[in-house]
Design a binder for these strands. Sequence first.
DNA 1: TGTTATTTTAAGTATATCCCCGATTGTGCC
DNA 2: GGCACAATCGGGGATATACTTAAAATAACA
Lengths: 215, 215
Amino acid sequence: MAVRIILADDHSIMLEGLKALFERDRDMEVVGMAHTGREAVRLAEKLSPDVVIMDVSMPDLNGIEATRQIMAQDPGKKVIALTIHSDARYAVEMIKAGARGYILKQCAYEEIRRAVRCVVKGEAYLSPGITGSLLGSLTGQAPEAGGGAFGFLSPREREVLQMLAEGKSSREMASMLNLSIKTVDTHKMNIMHKLKLRSVADLVRYAIREGLVEA
Amino acid sequence: MAVRIILADDHSIMLEGLKALFERDRDMEVVGMAHTGREAVRLAEKLSPDVVIMDVSMPDLNGIEATRQIMAQDPGKKVIALTIHSDARYAVEMIKAGARGYILKQCAYEEIRRAVRCVVKGEAYLSPGITGSLLGSLTGQAPEAGGGAFGFLSPREREVLQMLAEGKSSREMASMLNLSIKTVDTHKMNIMHKLKLRSVADLVRYAIREGLVEA
DNA sequence: TGTTATTTTAAGTATATCCCCGATTGTGCC
DNA sequence: GGCACAATCGGGGATATACTTAAAATAACA
């Protein structure tokens, strides 16, 4: 019997497109579609699907909360997150909420099928793109999954990162912090290594996401 | 003969889903798909499609710039923006760049077909959701807001700014744009002078504020 | 048509940064 | 004491950036 699937995404185009793709497969069947997390929870209750493919950001009730509620009503249902967020934080929250899969929309349809097959067999499936940063954020710091700049970076490093993102040069930072340029440089290097980022631009965007500075 | 269509979106799922939907229609044919604006421009040149359906935010070269370049190569091609941004600013820029349609991803597939039919007939198509805020932003204010990255910077400069803010190095940009590193460097310098900004970090924050890239 | 402005292109040079290496000091912890 | 880590500096070579200058190619416009 075909795997019964519910799709949840606030973009109709996405729902229709995914449905059209699933219709090519005999062993998977889309039995319901939801535009909001709340609708997804309601449909999951009513239709008892095998798998729910869930966007993270949705109006009314986001994918994380919706997943939590669906797991509460029946832990046997499998939820796969399908989202544009490659940010590890979303993945962590989604998995804590009970999701058994996490895929990025950048990925091909083939990957969704693979994920669906995995979760119905009881296995988990993580998008290759997310696995690295997820493991990094877990192994790097176990206790507080918060992940972000806090806990990961030392106070001094956060200080340097913030000033860097504010546009200060190494020389300015060194002068303001009464440090050698070399020291500032070392901090910058360590930050990049810890965060696995390669450019100043990446650092700035990271700092903005973490709320260290404003855009 | 069927309308020849090129799809451009950085999410593969979206591309595949849309293609699956279009395959149901006899009178529309997807002849090419692109993951970046640059790829879209290249494909449009090579395949001479009737219509390009273009996402606004894409890596490498955003939909607005890509539209501008496609219109420059052949004003007869019709570009339809398909995006999640209901923000009137994006719509305005997209239309100024030469787009003849603007649809939100919240809309149903049926609406895309309608938009495609409209633009091939030479008409324009605006998503109902966007028309209101668009008119509001036009009547309410600003003959030429001038403020933003659009108007101050040249197309090439915006292109460089986006890639810079995405974390690409001068060498990468030079290679992707088939330019000397020195040229890329000069553009960067001119951008800084025009915007009166002193550091890469400032440029990145500016690009984020202007919606050229995401944090 | 000719003249001006802008854009795009690029080289030269001095300075800054990146990224490897190593080193010292202090602090908390088992 | 031994261990891990934070914070502090330095050397040195490859790379990148800041800044100036300037030649083509386009666009704008009188």
